[in-house]
Write a protein that binds this DNA or RNA. Structure first.
Lengths: 309, 309
DNA sequence: AATCGAGATTTGTCTACGACAAAATGCTTA
DNA sequence: TAAGCATTTTGTCGTAGACAAATCTCGATT
């Protein structure tokens, strides 16, 4: 056996474990004095587990909108206090499901969700259960009440349920034709799955490409499948500054004949009017956009999108 | 309107579009003279689309095992020649499905797969259809015969089919209990889905965490669900040098009571005997490992894993 | 001819520190 | 209150070099 391996880990591993880039980790070290990794024989940084844990907590709080200057300099107690104060949007309805997940595992949650689906019908199920449940899980995660692995397990279950719904509903002749995906860097695919389920229900033809499709590939796909709409989703974690340029690039590749819809918490705070894109703050708005669409195919962009204010 | 948006993109966007890190892109520039990005007003690099395309091609070829020195210095023609020579493991059986995908879209492929599943039964369907189909798609993508968006669409369909199989088969009292996921940096989740389907079929209890679970979260999950086995998957694109250290870290967090199984094309070329891990080159080997497991729970590690040569 | 090991080469990661623009914040004024 | 404007914060990108691990090369040995 090798008794060697110290529990301290290198900077790239910290990047992967926390989601904070190496550049940021080094900058913080200089600016705030934290983290303060040890150095091994060469000058390479080695982070003790305790500091990694604290970084994880900081990242969680930052994802809720807090800023590094408020967090990185603080000690453990202050951070813990912030975590307690983090938002908590729990409906009573949601609590049941999270208890299920913890007590009966993924399988238990799945059962409960299917039951609810049968009882409410697809549209109400998605809008009234899945959506608030997602935010509840996000909040619980930010507060540290939910472990990352529970969040992963949750995500898997939801994914499975939504995929089934979307697939069973999707029909060959439906219109408009909608391509759903996320841009590179956006790993959260729940948004497009929810959209696919609801859109299919309202007889749109949905083609999902999963997450992280490069702009160029989206354009090719749009042409290959002759879609009317490209629907993208941006989570709140997606860096806002990147949304505008990315949408510009997409519009350039796509040409003018295809609508771009941007949904998700990240898109809600988007600077408006970017390159003929229709921002959809909520799924309800997405459904409305679907209803308002001119019935005829290939009718160009609707006024709401084409006009640049 | 701002007509001033040049099609050239920045280095971080190239990183996301190609999967090559900024460090590597800069090093190649110095070492091989390629890429040779333009510079904007400040000194920042701006990559023309053509160079990005070539980088994509290089990355594809490198994922098949070629080395930068053979590729990065070469011109377009030489690279195209390499692409033509890339492996091509197409069974006749596979061609049908890919034609389906291209002609009838994702929905067409799904229908065809379901038909085949019914006809062959789950085990043969996964081992004889899905597995070769995956490598055929990978090869086609490396050869440039398949667009990225087609690969994404394919992946979505397969995912959906496999998830359904795994979920319908999974049962409460099954044993052993297996946790399936991938490490951060490994985005390909098809491997664990295939494993989950087959393992469930053989009455293992499968818990999937999706992709990219940090080591510490895996350890917590393993404890929370009281699993006997943690099964990881590594694609051929996963940097080999990272596998060993990552598995060491996992073993440290996990303690000795839980087996670690490593599958996938990346694990197949792993340096053997790393930190009490059982490498599984193929899914068949995975099933065999399942059969050989001592029937009793909590029986410690089997000899094949515990012995350190 | 196949295998092995030592030495050379390739390759990606890591370090350091400065420059800088975009975003967020605070402050003033209409 | 809202709309500017100045200031601070913050992340990204730049250069250049050190270095270890992976891989290749080639001669010696079995």
């Amino acid at each position: 056996m090798k008794p060697r391996s110290s529990p301290n880990i290198g900077i790239s591993e910290v990047e992967r474990e926390t989601g904070l880039s190496m550049d940021v980790l080094r900058k913080w070290e200089g600016r705030y004095g934290f983290p303060a990794p040890l150095r091994d024989g060469r000058r390479t940084r080695r982070y003790p587990p305790q500091q990694v844990e604290r970084l994880r907590l900081i990242k969680r709080l930052m994802d809720t909108g807090m800023r590094p200057s408020q967090l990185v300099g603080q000690d453990e107690d202050a951070l813990a206090a912030f975590a307690r104060k983090a938002p908590d949007a729990r409906h009573e309805a949601c609590a049941i499901f999270l208890v299920r997940l913890r007590n009966d595992g993924p399988e238990g949650l799945r059962q409960q969700l299917l039951r609810e689906h049968m009882s409410l019908g697809t549209e109400r199920f998605v809008l009234d259960i899945i959506v608030p449940l997602n935010t509840a899980v996000g909040d619980a995660w930010a507060r540290g009440e939910l472990d990352l692995h529970e969040e992963h397990a949750y995500s898997e279950v939801i994914q499975c349920v939504l995929r089934n719904m979307a697939n069973q509903l999707n029909g060959a002749g439906y219109a408009p034709r909608v391509l759903l995906t996320t841009l590179p860097g956006e790993e959260h695919g729940l948004g497009i799955l929810m959209a696919a389920a609801l859109f299919s229900l309202h007889e749109a033809y949905c083609i999902s490409l999963g997450t992280q499709t490069p702009v160029q590939a989206i354009a090719l796909a749009a042409r290959a499948h002759d879609v009317d709409v490209v629907a993208l989703s941006f989570s709140s974690a997606y860096p806002r500054r990147r949304i505008g340029p990315a949408l510009d690039a997409l519009r350039r590749e796509l040409g003018a004949g295809v609508e771009i819809w941007a949904g998700g918490a990240g898109a809600a705070r988007m600077r408006a009017g970017t390159s003929g894109t229709l921002p959809l703050a909520t799924l309800e708005q997405g459904l409305e956009a679907l209803r308002r669409r001119p019935a005829t195919r290939a009718s160009g962009m609707p006024a709401s999108v084409a006009s640049s204010p």
